[in-house]
Every structure is written in structure tokens, then in C-alpha cells.
Write a protein that binds this DNA or RNA. Structure first.
Length: 575
RNA sequence: CGGAGUGUAGCGCAGCUUGGUAGCGCGCCACGUUCGGGACGUGGAGGUCCGGGGUUCAAAUCCCCGCACUCCGACCA
């Protein structure tokens, strides 16, 4: 038996922290020899890292196969015409990697695969008898991220599992969605992750009902809010923002213009006038499908573009360029307000309805208006929920407790797409009455490479990674203290072979290094268990079994090692 | 895309202000002494100083133009 020896393994560990890595999971992935960067946001997965990825993928396969999903492999290179058909060739924008072939035909590197799979299923499925159907693949995805960061957490090339479901009707879609939801909970649990499923926004992909699976982590890029009382949890982009009452209850008298030379931002205005931001009206100009719109939110609030787009029923929403703002208001950017605006639809957040003694731009250079009252001085065409929720808001679900905030890494998302893609791409079937119907679709993603990073983020200490046994590249490492000692090496090899025979992934550290070096590497890489073969214990026919997570050590007889290791691993792999 | 910064040996960095032909630590190779938590000594290998142009007798160093990478921001008026 030969197997895996550290003396020959391609595991380039690093003693020092590479300058390129900011967050702990990225640093450890580089130091432990899992990853190397090739270019911005593009990574090579070294043998050890790839083993972990394969274990994650295997868990995903087992759980998805168990709910009847079938694996297939879709193309990375996808024709533009398909994306034009769904309207996303333009909608996806700069984030899409585009290329042309020698005949000048346009393609993209798939950022996702709804178009391809819908076209496929549309072509092959004709009858309700062929539904429901769930298909998935594990594949490289390409997104030219505006700013790749955090190593593999936001890469431009990454591995994703994406699944697509096809049902006859909304009820079927609901059932499928629930099945995937539960499968996801099992997948992440088996990966050793604590995840929170939160209500999310469906964004550019379209669709209605959707949840994100979040790994809570300081470095997470997504902000979520959750209710400690009723369990409501949502991405801040999606969370319904319960309005708080306007801070003052009396009019300030007649509206009045004040000179505010060069004061353009809310912060500057707050300092200049001594009025708190929550009494200001922030006026933002957008083009909704080309039509100008003014959106009003309280000065200290953040406008949520998705909510605005939904409120307007707009498919394309972009900020108005500064020239356009000047045209509409007659004033430079920074002095816009709702008073006297014409030719623009005005949409207000609930919170500004009923505002009294408010401050806003005067639509004239270097001037603002004070003492503004809702109804008397300005109004809106529509009032709705426009702002991004924040921690401290009243829970929109139970209306009792205050929401708490957290940040998370999104490792998975489940969507109910409905018929958006099936209609755009003509994926129809004949129902039992022979009537043509669009297929009801769902899609379900898991960021595989990101999941690996999230696991490290959740499982490490000062010495290195602490792999959950289910995803550890190897479960055990056998370390003879002195590689040149024949007795130790012989005993170590025997233990190592027994572990293999018992089906345990093991590595033999046969390097002629000082013990400290080998221990440090073992801790850094994060093998769940280390079996040390040293002179002291060996004299009594024993070895040392040391667990990485709690640093506990036992000293079984040579004949008992496999049983002890097996028992410990099994205990740690339970759910 | 805007702002800031960095690019010198495999990795982490100094040298640049004040121009004179490149250095430190770790790693790597050889030998010796060591050997239970990243040993020590001796000897050694390894560099288009990101690229291109310019100034100069002379450029890692000064100037110009590119490129790459990192961080911050990109609705927050």
C-alpha cells in the first residue's frame, strides 16, 4: 500500500500570511495550500482544496439525488441569441463575460443557466406526463464582478451547483420548492455549517418567492435583520420597513428659503443648519424605463431600488444622470427637493407622508427650504415602502419586537421563478385536456467554492483550519515523530494502512522534519485527528490520538487505534 | 468607473527622499550538529528591481506613458 505521503504531496503551506489576503478564511486557504490566485478573482484549487470541494459536491449530489433531481452538464459557452430571447443579454450588463467567435458570432460565458436549461426542456418536454422534472449541474460560472474580493467568496470564476425544477402548476412548484428547501438544510448541516434561511429579494433573476441561506459571519457582504421574538428573518433589501412616526408633531410655520452655499450632502446640511437628518427629505431622481421619477425618503434613510422598481412596475431602473437632474429641477445636484416639481412622477416613502417642519432642497443653486409641511408645501403621487430596513425597526411580522442586525455570507438561494423564462423561451407542455401551458419553474443555487470559504470562516482557530470531518480533505494524519526511526516508521505505516483499510481518508507524514514543523502543518491544514507515533507511547505499544477541535488526546494500544479513530469520527459526523 | 496604495529572489519586506550597478528575514540546495510544537552552524543557488519610453557619464531610485494587483467607494444629493 502506498497511498498519500506528505513527503510527496503537493501541499505548499506558507509560514507567513500572504499580503493579498484580507480575511481569515482566505489567508488560511492560501497558507494551508488549498488555493492559489491566478488573476483577480480567479483561483486554482490545489489538491487539498479540491478534495474538500469534491466532498462538498458529493454531499450536494447525495441530497439532491435523494429528492429525485437528476444531474446533467450544461455548456459554459452560451449563444447570445438565447439571452436576447429572455431579455437578459442587455439586462445583465457589464457583469457578463462576452466573447465572439471567428465568425463574429456573440457568446457569453455562462453567469447562470436558466436560458440554456429552459431552451433544452422546452424542446424536449411536450406533455404533462413528463413533469415534474428537476435537473441540476455542478459547473463553473463566470461573472465579471465589479470588484472581486475576499478570495473565493466573491470570485469571477467559481463553482456553483445550480438546479432547475419544472412543474405543471404553482402547487407543484410549491411542493418542489419545499423539497429543495429541506434538502438545502440537510446539505449545509452536513457541511458543518450553521445557516439561516432568510426571506430575500429576487433581484434581476426575476420571480417571486425566494429564500437565501446565510452563514452568519462578520465578513459577510449581505446584511440581514431578524426578529428575536417571532423568528422573522430577511435580507435588509427585502425586509418590509415598518415606518416610524415623523419626529416632530408641529408645523414650523411658513416655508422659507435659506442660503446654503456649497452644502450638497445630508451630512453637510445637518452640520450647516443644525437640523437632524431625520427631518430632511431626500429627493432622488431615477429613470424608470426611461421615464423620470422623483423618490422621497427621510434624510437618514437609504432608498431601496428594488422596492422602488417594484412600486413603479419598472423593468429597468437607473439613476438619472446629473444633467437630467439639472434639467428637471433647474438646480445642480445637491439642491433637489419635492416642492414645485413638474413633469416628474413623485413617489414617497411612507415615512415622509405627514412630514412637518421638514427641510429639502429648493431646486435652486445654493439654497434649501425649511419649515416644509406635507400637503401644504408638497405631496406625492404615490406613497409606499421605499426604504431599506435597518436594525431597530419594528418587526413587520409580529409588530412587537425590534429587529436585530447581522451580516452573512450567502451560500445558497432558492427561487420560485414561475413562468417568466418558460414564457420568454417558449417552454410549454400540453396538459391533460390537451391545452398548451407554460411550465412552472424554480431554480436553486449553491455557491460551492464560497461554501468552502464559509466553512473555514466558521471553523478555525489561531493555529489554522478545523475541518468538520464530513468535508475535511483527509480525516486523519499519521505523524511519526522521527522519520528516520525504523520502529516508528513501521508502526506509523501500519496504523496508516489500517485506517485506509477501514475506509478512513488518511495521510502519512513521512517527511524527515522536526516534529514541531509537522505538528504546525497538521494544525494549519486542520486534519480532524492526528495520530502521533512517538518513542514514549510506542514503548508501551501505544500511540497518541489527538483531536483537532477540542485538542483532547487519548493513548490507545496499537490494536485499538482504528476503533478509537472511527468512533471519534463517527461522533463528529452525526447530525 | 472614481479615490488611495502597492509592484524589488518562492513568501514577507528594506533600499527610492539625497542617482553610483541590490539587500534582510523566512523558504530552497549541500554538509555537519540537532530532533515531542515552525532548530543551529558553515557554504551555496536564486533577481528582465512590473513593462515601455525619456533625462543623465550613470536609473530600482528622477520624469512621462502603459500594465497588474490590493484596499475604500460607487443611490446616500
Amino acid at each position: 500500500m502506498y497511498g498519500m505521503r506528505m513527503s510527496e504531496a503537493f501541499v505548499p503551506t506558507l509560514r507567513e500570511v500572504p499580503a493579498e489576503a484580507e480575511i481569515v478564511s482566505h489567508q488560511l486557504a492560501l497558507r494551508a495550500g488549498l488555493l492559489r490566485r491566478s488573476s483577480a478573482g480567479v483561483y486554482t484549487h490545489l489538491p487539498l482544496g479540491y478534495r474538500t470541494l469534491k466532498k462538498i459536491m458529493q454531499i450536494i449530489r447525495e441530497e439532491l439525488d435523494a429528492i429525485g433531481a437528476q444531474e446533467l452538464m450544461l455548456p459554459i459557452v452560451q449563444p447570445a441569441e438565447l439571452w436576447r430571447a429572455s431579455g437578459r443579454w442587455d439586462a445583465y450588463g457589464a457583469e457578463m463575460f462576452r466573447l465572439k467567435d471567428r465568425h463574429d458570432r456573440e457568446y457569453c460565458l455562462g453567469p447562470t443557466h436558466e436560458e440554456i436549461i429552459t431552451a433544452l426542456v422546452g424542446a424536449e418536454v411536450d406533455s404533462y406526463r413528463q413533469l415534474p422534472l428537476s435537473l441540476y449541474q455542478i459547473q463553473n460560472k463566470y461573472r465579471d464582478e465589479i470588484r472581486p474580493r475576499f478570495g473565493v467568496i466573491r470570485g469571477r470564476e467559481f463553482i456553483m451547483k445550480d438546479a432547475y425544477s419544472f412543474d405543471r402548476d404553482p402547487e407543484g412548484l410549491n411542493e418542489t420548492y419545499e423539497r429543495f428547501f429541506r434538502a438545502y438544510q440537510r446539505i449545509f448541516a452536513r457541511c458543518g455549517l450553521t445557516v439561516h434561511a432568510v426571506e430575500a429579494d429576487s433581484g434581476a433573476i426575476g420571480g417571486s418567492h425566494t429564500h437565501e441561506f446565510m452563514v452568519l459571519a462578520e465578513v459577510g457582504e449581505d446584511r440581514i435583520v431578524h426578529c428575536p421574538q417571532c423568528g422573522y428573518a430577511a435580507n435588509v433589501e427585502k425586509a418590509v420597513a415598518v415606518p416610524t412616526p415623523w419626529p416632530v408633531t408641529a408645523s414650523g410655520g411658513q416655508a422659507e428659503a435659506v442660503a446654503t452655499p456649497g452644502v450638497r450632502t445630508i451630512d453637510e446640511l445637518e452640520a450647516f443648519l443644525g437640523v437632524p437628518a431625520n427631518r430632511m427629505i431626500k429627493t432622488l431622481f431615477y429613470l424608470a424605463d426611461g421615464e423620470p421619477v422623483a423618490a422621497l425618503v427621510r434624510g437618514d434613510r437609504e432608498l431601496n431600488e428594488v422596492k422602488l422598481a417594484t412600486a413603479l412596475g419598472a423593468t429597468r431602473l437607473e439613476m438619472a444622470p446629473p444633467e437630467r437632474i439639472e434639467e428637471l429641477t433647474g438646480a445642480p445636484v445637491g439642491f433637489s427637493g419635492p416642492v414645485g416639481l413638474s413633469g416628474v412622477r413623485i413617489v414617497a416613502d411612507h415615512e415622509v407622508v405627514g412630514a412637518l417642519d421638514a427641510v429639502a432642497g429648493a431646486n435652486a443653486a445654493d439654497a434649501h427650504l425649511i419649515h416644509l409641511d406635507w400637503g401644504r408645501d408638497f405631496a406625492a403621487d404615490v406613497a409606499c415602502d421605499l426604504r431599506t430596513a435597518v436594525p431597530g425597526d419594528t418587526c413587520p411580522s409580529c409588530r412587537e419586537a425590534a429587529l436585530e442586525g447581522a451580516s452573512g455570507i450567502e451560500v445558497g438561494q432558492v427561487f420560485q421563478l414561475g413562468t417568466k423564462y418558460s414564457e420568454a423561451l417558449g417552454a410549454r407542455f400540453k396538459d391533460a385536456e390537451g391545452k398548451e401551458q407554460p411550465i412552472w419553474m424554480g431554480c436553486y443555487g449553491i455557491g460551492v467554492t464560497r461554501t468552502m470559504a464559509a466553512i473555514i470562516e466558521q471553523h478555525h482557530d489561531d493555529d489554522g483550519i478545523i475541518w468538520p470531518v464530513t468535508v475535511a480533505p483527509y480525516q486523519a494524519i499519521v505523524v511519526p515523530i522521527k522519520a528516520t526511526d525504523a520502529d516508528q516508521m513501521e508502526a506509523a505505516k501500519k496504523v496508516y494502512e489500517q485506517l485506509w483499510t477501514a475506509g478512513i481518508d488518511a495521510v502519512l507524514d513521512d517527511r524527515d522534519e522536526r516534529p514541531g514543523v509537522k505538528f504546525k502543518d497538521a494544525d494549519l491544514i486542520g486534519f480532524p485527528v492526528r495520530i502521533t507515533v512517538g518513542p514514549k507511547a510506542l514503548a508501551e505499544g501505544r500511540v497518541e490520538v489527538r483531536w483537532r477541535d477540542n485538542r483532547r488526546e487519548e493513548r490507545p494500544l496499537l490494536s485499538e487505534v482504528v476503533g478509537v479513530v472511527q468512533a471519534g469520527l463517527r461522533e463528529r459526523a452525526r447530525f
